[in-house]
Amino acid sequence: MTMQDNIAPLKGLVLCGGFSTRMQEDKSTIAYHDMPQWQYLTTLLQSFLGEVYISCRQEQQDIFAHYPHLIPDSVPYGGPSAGLLSAHALQPQTAWLVLACDLPLVGKQSLELLINARDIHKAATSFISPVNELPEPLIAIWEPAGLEALLQNVIAGKNCPRKTMLNSDIALLQNPYAAEQFNANTPEEKAEAMKAFGL
């Protein structure tokens, strides 16, 4: 077996399964880029990766009815861990480049940096948050070992991807394009993002 054989294939995963309570509308359908956010992010990931999947709740599937690669939540856990672990359950030998649907400013330069810095020997490769200097678990590459660690933590009642990262051996990157990590989770943050695009 060669070194190449040991490298988990990298695929894309757009997390759309949140309830968007603070935003008061489904964040995955907001059109910051003349298309729904889920479509923008899948198209962005497809420019780098051969296969890109959408993670969603069971009752959301109609929103993405024409998209061929859906992973409805299939595990009894909540939050973003549900999407990550549903993907891991479906393809346990896959590494996932994960993007949350609340990243309106993310672009090719951040993803290129993340992919080029991927460390297959670590549990994950993640950017440092410009807000709190902690790992960004939802704009990151999760290796199978990292997702297995997340699974064990969730089973133990520790349902937090960031805490799994903090307790794992991960590669952490400073992003020179850190503005692309901006999260829009409220109507005010949505307005801020729209303003950035002149909308």
Rank of each mutant, 00 (worst) to 15 (best):
T2D: 14
D5W: 00
N6C: 05
I7P: 00
L10R: 07
L13K: 11
V14W: 02
F19T: 09
T21G: 05
D26T: 03
I30R: 04
I30Y: 06
Y32P: 10
Y32T: 12
D34R: 10
P36A: 10
Q37L: 02
Q39K: 13
L41N: 01
T43E: 10
L49H: 13
L49R: 10
L49D: 11
I54W: 07
S55H: 13
C56K: 06
R57H: 04
Q58F: 03
A65Y: 05
H66D: 15
H66Q: 12
D73P: 00
V75Q: 10
Y77G: 04
S81T: 02
G83W: 10
H88Q: 13
Q93Y: 05
T94P: 04
A95Q: 09
A95G: 15
L97M: 14
V98W: 07
A100C: 09
D102G: 11
V106A: 09
K108G: 02
L111E: 12
E112C: 15
L113A: 12
L113Q: 15
L114N: 01
I115M: 12
I115K: 08
N116M: 11
A124H: 05
A124C: 08
F127E: 07
S129T: 13
L134G: 00
P137K: 01
I139C: 15
W142M: 05
L147R: 08
G157S: 11
K158I: 13
N159P: 03
P161A: 14
R162V: 02
K163N: 09
S168L: 06
A171P: 02
L172P: 03
Q174K: 14
A178I: 01
A179P: 00
Q181H: 12
N183L: 14
A184K: 05
A184M: 06
P187V: 09
P187H: 09
E188I: 12
E189V: 04
M194V: 00
K195D: 07
F197T: 04
G198T: 02
